[in-house]
Computed example of a mutant assay.
Amino acid sequence: MNDAALIREIEMKYPNTAGLVVLKNGRLIYERYFDGHNETDTIHIFSVTKSISSLLVGMALDQGFIQNVDQKVLDFFPDYVLKRGENSIQEITLKHLLTMTAPYKYKSEPFTKVFRSDDWTKAGLDLLGGKGTIGSFRYSTVGSQIISGILQNAIGKSMLEFAGENLFKPLEIKPPQPTTLVDKETHIAFIKNKNAQGWVVDPQGLPVAGWGLTLCPRDMAKIGQLCLNQGVWNGKQLVSASWIQESTTEHSRWNEYSYGYLWWILRQNDSGTFAALGDSGNTIYVNRKEQIVVAIACHFKPRAKTRIDFISQYILPEIG
């Protein structure tokens, strides 16, 4: 790879990059760190967390804790009390949450209201419904938190513990410790921390399903390679190939963008490419045709561009 050109492009256009790892055919072919980081430093990967939550849903389904993605959301919350006139919520399924096609009662996401509450899952449930149409794409981070509650109730243990046993340990990823954000200041400090650690949990101890996880680029690349391997790692099927295929197939659309089960589906010359994309440029990119995985960890930067064009212009031509 043209190391000088790549570094120059990162420094000029993507200066918040902390680390970059590239795998080809399962082999590490490029690794570079910036701003004083090394291979063990963890970074908050923002919404890349959502795609990892998708893998955990697949594992729970494989193990029989969840029957299918068409199960009604409220089936997992038998004690939840509906408000008068909200019967439509009963038709919302797990699949609607995974494909971002559930409706919500807000114009813009009420992050502060949800993340200052005592129970973030219940706060998400309280926002379901409204005048929106079930089946229409509506990206929601606060709504994603409901998935954490679903896994907790279906499995009988925290999503974080389940992830440690079924994903992190087999991949030899150091399990993140639960991290609590007690107020707005600590919340902002975590997001802006260049050396963030752990997995954010709510006051009930449930990890955030839509953000809040910290990983290093090597660990992000392992997760991408697991998906490229159709769920197999060191000869063991960690998550079914059918789930990998289904979750990385288009199920909904937002303008020209395709969406699977908490994965973005990229249309790149029928390459079977999909990606986990997070705020500030955090990326796990998987290209089936070229057998390439790219992991990029980035510090917080408002309105940062995605790294897809960067990967297409400066990585694929060199190794594809």
Rank of each mutant, 00 (worst) to 15 (best):
G272V: 07
L125H: 09
G124R: 07
D62G: 13
S247L: 01
Y30K: 07
K194P: 01
K83T: 08
L277Y: 07
S53M: 12
R27D: 01
L266S: 05
D118W: 02
T17D: 00
E246R: 08
L228W: 09
I319E: 01
C216S: 15
A18D: 02
L56T: 06
G210S: 14
L262E: 04
L167I: 12
W233K: 11
A18S: 10
H187I: 05
S258F: 07
P302E: 11
K113Q: 13
D309L: 09
V293E: 05
N195F: 10
N16A: 03
H187F: 13
I284G: 10
S148F: 02
K222T: 07
T141H: 00
S54E: 04
H37A: 03
G124N: 07
A209F: 06
N153E: 11
L160A: 14
A221W: 08
A102C: 14
K184S: 12
L125N: 12
D119F: 01
A221K: 09
V293F: 10
P178C: 05
K107R: 11
T186K: 15
F46L: 01
F65G: 08
E31L: 04
D126I: 02
R288A: 15
K83A: 14
N229L: 10
A163H: 05
I134T: 09
T93S: 15
L55F: 03
L61V: 12
D183V: 01
K184I: 04
I244C: 14
L28D: 00
D62P: 14
T180F: 13
A5E: 11
Q245N: 12
N269A: 15
R288Q: 15
G130L: 04
E161I: 07
R288V: 06
K83P: 00
D202C: 04
A196C: 05
K113H: 06
I92F: 15
R307Q: 13
T283S: 12
L20P: 00
A102D: 09
Q245L: 05
L61S: 08
G205P: 04
Y259F: 15
Q145Y: 05
G231M: 08
I223H: 10
G19E: 01
K131A: 10
V73K: 09
A297K: 04
L266E: 15
F76L: 05
G212I: 03
L97K: 12
N255E: 09
V73D: 04
Q63Y: 13
N68S: 15
V182N: 12
R267W: 03
L82N: 10
G132I: 05
K13E: 04
L277A: 14
S258Y: 08
F300Q: 02
Q152W: 04
I66N: 03
I155W: 14
I188V: 14
W120R: 02
G164H: 06
F115C: 06
F190I: 06
W263Y: 14
L238N: 12
K184M: 07
T248A: 06
T273L: 10
R8Q: 11
Y261M: 11
I173R: 13
R288W: 04
Y285V: 08
Q268N: 14
E290H: 15
